[in-house]
């Protein structure tokens, strides 16, 4: 089963950066940004990602075909230009170019919304625990520990088989299980922020704790959260493809890269193009996300290089 969290080294880098950030202040961000843009692989990856992103959004309009229309005369046809089936068609005669790009929309969406879900839950949970401190904190951390040793993948499979497979449930599920590390990082950050003057001031003014968390703490941990979220995206996309393999992905006629790749893998000896195009997009995207992630890590933790 695919692990849906970034690898340990990236997590460590983010946490460490958060610590340094606290000591040295704002200029670290600027340094990190400079370092990131000096990393050629990361920058190229970012450009490719942007290109794929745009293609996925506008691409479907370039083709004369609908993503769910059947071309009866062109069932499982190889790529050709005459009928504008640039990537060929699937076994039902639907245009693969359009479907690949539509699938890309879903995959990107699952990745991004899944990460967002994780971020929202993780940030609020971590900030609350960190800010409350004391018993509440240790109780919340215990809960986190318990959750951490849960076989979540299995719960996700259970949920997906039993309660239908709406796309919302997918990213809720994926996001819902990957916020744990996020919560830890945010908690650490919050604890150090808590002692700062502006928080003290807010408290003295009688601001409610919930307001302090939302207005003062969350905006201050946001940077680190965004970086971490970017690392979550590729693992989410990969996990969605795993769900698709189990037949628990998005609803037809919608599709995702995972679903397309899985269909392609079933017929790779008969219709190579049905596997090749979606796999190419999936792999390139994940490659790029990973290089960007590596770039971010290196930028945040310069000692490595």
């Amino acid at each position: 089963m695919t692990a849906i969290s970034p690898s340990a080294d990236k997590k460590a880098a983010v946490a460490k950066f958060a610590k340094d950030l606290e000591i040295e202040g704002r200029s670290l961000w600027a340094d990190a940004r400079d370092r990131f843009f000096r990393n050629r692989a990361a920058v190229i990856s970012l450009i490719i990602l942007a290109f794929i992103g745009i293609l996925v959004v506008v691409g479907p309009w370039l083709s004369p075909h609908e993503f769910d229309a059947i071309d009866w005369g062109y069932m499982a046809a190889p790529p050709e230009t005459e009928m504008s089936h640039w990537f060929g068609t699937d076994s039902l005669g639907r245009d693969l170019f359009v479907r690949t790009l539509m699938g890309g929309r879903i995959s990107f969406m699952v990745g991004i919304l899944g990460a967002l879900t994780a971020v929202v839950i993780g940030t609020l949970y971590g900030a609350t625990a960190g800010y409350a401190g004391g018993r509440v904190d240790s109780a919340m951390m215990r809960v986190l520990e318990i959750l951490q040793s849960f076989p979540f993948m299995f719960l996700v499979i259970l949920l997906m088989t039993m309660f239908g497979r709406s796309i919302y449930l997918i990213f809720l599920c994926i996001g819902g299980v990957s916020w744990l590390d996020m919560a830890r990082i945010v908690r650490g950050q919050t604890i150090s922020l808590k002692g700062r003057e502006f928080i003290e001031a807010a408290r003295v003014c009688g601001t409610k704790p919930s307001a302090i968390i939302v207005r003062h703490i969350v905006p201050n941990v946001l940077g680190i959260v965004v970086v971490y979220a970017s690392l979550l995206v590729p693992s989410m996309i990969l996990f969605e493809s795993f769900l698709s393999f189990l037949g628990l992905g998005v609803q037809e006629p919608m599709t995702s890269w995972g679903a397309l790749v899985n269909e392609g893998a079933q017929s790779m000896e008969v219709a190579t193009w049905q596997l090749a195009f979606p796999v190419f997009f999936l792999v390139v995207t994940l490659f790029c996300f990973n290089y960007v992630g590596d770039g971010l890590r290196d930028a945040l933790d310069p000692k490595d290089r």
């Binding site: 769910d68 229309a69 059947i70 076994s91 039902l92 037949g247 037809e252």
Partner: peptide
């Protein structure tokens, strides 16, 4: 019900 072939038939008939 979820299955490759039922899906195909359903898509075709809806078209």
């Amino acid at each position: 019900n979820t299955s490759e072939s039922h899906k195909k038939v359903a898509i075709a008939i809806s078209q």
